[in-house]
Design a protein around this nucleic acid. Structure first.
Length: 662
RNA sequence: GCCGGCUUAGCACAGUGGUAGUGCAGCGGUUUUGUAAACCGAAGGUCGCGGGUUCAAAUCCUGCAGCCGGCACCA
């Protein structure tokens, strides 16, 4: 580097571009000037600059030799900047239209941005047109974004004077060493880390306000409720349109809509948060559960069934009574009164029972029956356990978040040195199951020790390490959520997104060093002494309700054949073919295929339409010709082709296709 | 639980002060039909529930419940 011809001299610096070329400039040159020196067109298109990989303002003077890339709207960072800048102009627009509104924070999110405001009267979507119009005016106004650095005192005084108490709090919480950066656009300014584009005009007009929502200040439910306005923003109108179209399409695959259309389940007020499964929906459930049962049996699990309702003493022992009671359904252990108009209970309850919110304590009871030897470990107790949790009403969501749900739950009792192998086995099983189900678009999150926890750091190191090593051994990508683990142990969460991108936790494995201790579970080791087993809580699908909901959205109702409630409909063209249709139907039933017979006095067009809307994967159409030839005219969902196939072959092929993957 | 919106026939929706309408489904009839909606007819609603304002309430006010979108919480 020392002899290089382009070594900086005096007030010169060397700028290296992404293509490897270099140029030298006077120190203090800005990104804008660099762009301008390359091409006028580039200067015009430039919205920001990346200096040594760090996104910065075009106006920022560069004092050292560096790698510099000019960022344009088309670049990936461009979209982020458009959204961030749009958040600022939305805040300006809102404050102009609604004086007295306080601003708080306005970050970018996937597909757009939001801004949280404080105002006595919350906004409604009816305010959107006015806000959008004002935003467009600000864009058109073409104000430069001007970066300023203020002292803390000045910033605090300024915002205090303006009555911006939330901003004051934000500034006060910034580390003392950090400069207070202010971005100005015309007369309006905001505290902001930056960077921003050069001018409001660069935001463009491809944005749209989407929804209002309440959001707690700093995400804390004890603090004020703010009004959040969500918006989406894109580079071009076409991109915006495409996004809105995609949202519309996603709404069509909403599991609540599909559940109704396909007559799978319903929910009603009197049992809110609990699902009424209709015959077709339950057929999916049973198929999925049976599949899971075979998988578990093969992996060395023993299935059990434990009580639904247990005395409060039991929950006291497990710790749920103290820590989890507000989420539990508690039942007084008293004989109810049937006297008309009388009290519900004849006497005040002296004791209570509760519906189980989790299966783990019950499984420990099974473990504790009789002495366990180290030879019994690992002991894997599985249960399709139906749990009740009294969830916050606002949390309920279709069949994805309910108050009564069934997990494909299991608890593995093992020695510490068996943890890793069990974690690997579990992850392998989960991966295989998700693959079978076509749900391999999942992410894994490792949730580590929270601040409030039990157990030594050594133990936590071991536990987190075990999970990490399992993932790494299997080459499964994962993210880490520091501090999100349970107080009793770290966990892995297998997360799948629904149709509109919401994330749902499905599979999980949690290490637990607490409950065996608490409930005094032990086994006799090789040394003849009593030892404490480790407990792994784990579920592959998680809540089956949720998993089915997610699958319905993933497949838009067109589940794999083996899970479809109706796999085939035999439809006759005229009454003359009814007898043959019955014969075909009989053959299908003989093969265990879930078939239906449609002999209605209707045109074949109608039958095709209706069964297609019901997403029946295979339609066997039969008329006089098919009867004469002992064939079937097969029409598959999603295709209008008609395949003429011999009856025997058609039935055999379908039976083959309808087989579960395991 | 918190903020906002919504709740009209089985389903999808219209109806902003004068006591309810459309389409589809369902029911009755006609039609026997060749791959995404045959035709005709008669029905069907205490407009989520309770209270209030008014001569009059689906419509305005209010309490509650549920649902939807978020937040918080979470499988």
């Amino acid at each position: 580097m020392s002899e290089s011809a382009c070594a900086p001299v005096a007030d010169r610096i060397v700028i290296t571009f992404p293509d490897g070329k270099t140029r030298d400039y006077t120190t203090g040159v800005t990104g804008a000037e660099i762009a301008d020196s390359i091409a006028k067109s580039l200067a015009k298109a430039a919205i920001a600059v990346k200096i040594d990989g760090v996104l910065s303002d075009l106006s920022l003077p560069i004092h050292h030799s560096a790698t510099v890339a000019i960022v344009k709207r088309e670049d990936p960072e461009g979209l982020e900047l458009i959204r961030h800048d749009a958040a600022h102009i939305m805040a300006e627009a809102v404050q102009k239209l609604f004086p007295g509104t306080q601003v708080t924070i306005g970050p970018t999110v996937e597909n757009g941005f939001y801004y949280d405001f404080f105002r006595n009267q919350p906004f409604t979507t009816e305010d959107f047109d006015a806000i959008e119009a004002e935003m467009r005016r600000i864009v058109e106004r073409g104000s430069d974004f001007v970066r300023e650095v203020w002292s803390r005192e000045k910033a605090i005084a300024y915002f205090k004077d303006k009555g911006e108490h939330f901003k004051v709090e934000l500034i006060q919480d910034l580390p003392g060493t950090e400069d207070i950066k202010i971005y100005r656009q015309g007369d309006w300014l905001d505290l902001c880390r930056g960077p921003h584009m050069a001018n409001t005009r660069q935001i463009g007009t491809a944005f749209k306000l989407m929804k209002v929502a309440g959001a707690y200040w700093r995400g804390d439910s004890n603090k004020q409720m703010l009004t959040r306005i969500y918006a989406t923003a894109w580079r071009t109108d076409d991109e915006l349109k495409a996004h809105l179209h995609q949202l519309e399409e996603a709404e069509k695959r909403d599991h609540r809509k599909i559940g109704k259309e396909m007559d799978l389940f319903h929910l009603q007020e009197e049992a809110h948060g609990s699902v009424f499964w209709h015959p077709k929906g339950w057929t999916i459930w049973v198929a999925l559960e049976s599949y899971m049962r075979r998988r578990l049996q093969n992996d060395g699990y023993k299935e059990v069934k434990t009580p639904q309702l247990m005395d409060s003493r039991f929950w006291e022992a497990s710790g749920h009574w103290g820590k989890y009671r507000e989420n539990m359904f508690v039942v007084p252990d008293v004989v109810p009164n049937t006297e008309e108009g009388g009290k519900v209970f004849k006497e005040d309850p002296k004791s209570f029972m509760a519906l189980k919110p989790m299966n783990c304590p019950a499984h420990v009871q099974i473990f504790k029956q009789g002495l366990k030897s180290y030879r019994d470990l690992p002991l894997r107790l599985a249960e399709f356990g139906c749990c009740h949790r009294n969830e916050a009403h606002g949390a309920l969501h279709g069949i994805m978040r309910v108050r009564q749900f069934t997990q494909d739950d299991a608890h593995i009792f093992c020695r510490e040195d068996q943890i890793q192998e069990e974690c690997i086995k579990f992850c392998e099983l989960t991966r295989a199951v998700y693959k079978d189900l076509g749900m391999d678009n999942f992410t894994v999150r490792l949730e580590t020790r929270p601040e409030k926890r039990i157990g030594s750091d050594e133990l936590w190191d071991k536990a987190e390490g075990g999970l990490k090593q399992a993932l790494e051994k299997l080459g499964m990508p994962y993210t880490i959520a520091e501090g999100d683990g349970a107080f009793y142990g770290p966990k892995l969460a297998f997360i799948i997104r629904d149709a509109i991108g919401r994330e749902w936790g499905c599979g999980t494995i949690q290490l637990d060093f607490n409950l065996p201790e608490r409930l005094d579970a032990n086994y006799i080791g090789e040394d003849g002494q009593r030892h404490r087993p480790v407990m792994l809580h784990r579920a592959v699908l998680g809540a089956i309700e949720r998993f089915i909901g997610i699958m319905l959205e993933n497949y838009a109702g067109k589940l794999p054949m083996w899970l479809m409630p109706v796999q085939c409909v035999v439809a006759s063209i005229t009454g003359d073919a009814d007898d043959y249709a019955r014969k075909v139907y009989g053959e299908l039933k003989k093969q265990g295929i879930r078939a239906e017979l449609d002999l209605r006095n209707e045109k074949i067009n109608l039958k095709v339409r209706e069964h297609s809307l019901q997403k029946v994967p295979a339609l066997f159409v039969v008329g006089a010709r098919e009867e004469a030839d002992q064939t079937i005219a097969i029409r598959r969902l999603g295709s209008d082709a008609q395949n003429i196939v011999k009856l025997i072959e058609a039935v055999e092929a379908l039976a083959n296709e309808a087989k579960p993957p395991y």
